[in-house]
Nucleic acid binder design. Structure first.
Lengths: 227, 227
DNA sequence: CGAATGCTTCGATTATGATCGAACCATGAA
DNA sequence: TTCATGGTTCGATCATAATCGAAGCATTCG
């Protein structure tokens, strides 16, 4: 019974159409100003201000001030995930299995999640590396195999530097749009950085989208080939 | 912009405390009558009836009539997952990574998901089978290896009968509480049935809980050993 | 420094929706 | 058949919260 009020509060924050519109606008990962969000929701700035304050206090939004501008972004990926789940539910009336997640095709394909690659491409890479014994599941742990170490070194990643870091090298991370895992951890982050260095893809500075070039896609396909 | 009203409607359905309490009570997987749900929410039956009608129209609940009794259950696992996500968010104020999902320890440990084993034990079994090359990832597909086929046959599963079925033998299924995959598909279902046949665990007839006996746990640990 | 712009706060208005008593319908048991 | 119980519907009541004009504060620009 103590759980009830908690989810009802969060849900009621999302349950207002104006607030839902603003949250949806922020899902793409871009930080928007209060004025921009007011426009998104079709309400006055004062109303938006009041709503944004509520979302902030509910830990759904995180603000950042720049001079007279106040930018808001979603407080965490957790929030984005939850919004995606609600979207799936709204879209899913009656269908037992379908594909939830962002409707934006670019976001589905490749996006940033905790600084590593998510979306279809993220899960493809992970699964390819498992398939080719480059990564190995050891219970809950994901380990890089000897062959995998060679693979990522060839790809241009300084594995020793990564191993010297405190954070886990490899981790599974739930990919919400694909409903499967993608690679997280320092290696996951390094892969994304390397992909960018190679010019295969660019992170949109304003959004979570990772935009692969046509050539980058070809290259990535080779990298993630099933071998 | 067209997406907004959709999630706000679903979220507002969950956003009422009485409705949230009723939805939460149903998360355990048990079907409850309108009267029982009214009690759960601490409201009168007439109020509950009105709320339940809304949840039903919103495709969050599924009703089943038995004589004068009307039982309600969550409309799908999708709904349960979304509620779990909201719970995670409500619990997560400020924490970037934590463990969402049912608070009920039994549900976290082992529960039914689309008729196969989910929860900690479900993910452990899956990961053990991957680790020991009993299952193999081939891109998105999960395949049973030759060694795996022998393993499940030894476990007492009629693999030929399963293969004759139309549905996929092995599938990955997102385990929300563990945030990792567990085994789904006809093999996943058969494993759960077999576990029951062996008397290791019982499905609670009223809930999604899969209750392992002490001996069953020992046996399961052996089955899911990392060897 | 004054004007423009971005944002917050205040307070009044109004729409919405939860709530429950009463009445009614459906089912089951004695 | 009557009574008890489960559930639905109606309508009135009342609390809540979104909304926006006005006013005020903060920052930027000419």
């Amino acid at each position: 019974m103590k759980e009830g009020p908690d989810i009802s509060h969060i849900a009621s924050l999302i349950g207002d159409p104006a607030r839902a519109n603003m949250l949806t606008a922020l899902m793409v990962g871009k930080a928007l100003t209060a004025s921009e969000l007011a426009q998104e929701a079709g309400i006055t700035l004062q109303t938006a201000s009041s709503h944004l304050s509520k979302l902030e206090k509910g830990n759904l939004l995180r603000p950042r001030k720049q001079g007279r501008h106040k930018y808001f972004s979603l407080a965490s990926d957790e929030v984005a995930h939850t919004l995606e789940a609600l979207m799936g539910l709204a879209a899913n009336a009656g269908h037992l299995r379908s594909r939830p997640g962002p409707r934006n095709a670019a976001l589905r394909e490749a996006r940033v999640c905790y600084n590593h690659l998510a979306g279809e491409m993220g899960t493809r890479l992970y699964e390819s590396m498992i398939t080719r014994q480059l990564l190995r599941l050891n219970g809950e742990e994901v380990e890089l195999t000897t062959a995998g170490a060679g693979f990522v070194r060839d790809f241009g990643i300084d594995l020793d530097a990564l191993k010297a870091q405190r954070s886990a090298l490899c981790r599974q991370c739930l990919d919400w749009s694909e409903r499967r895992s993608h690679l997280a951890g320092s290696l996951g982050r390094a892969m994304l950085v390397r992909i960018e260095e190679l010019g295969w893809a660019k992170r949109d500075t304003k959004t979570r989208i990772v935009a692969f070039s046509p050539n980058g896609k070809v290259r990535f396909d080779e990298l993630a080939a099933r071998g």
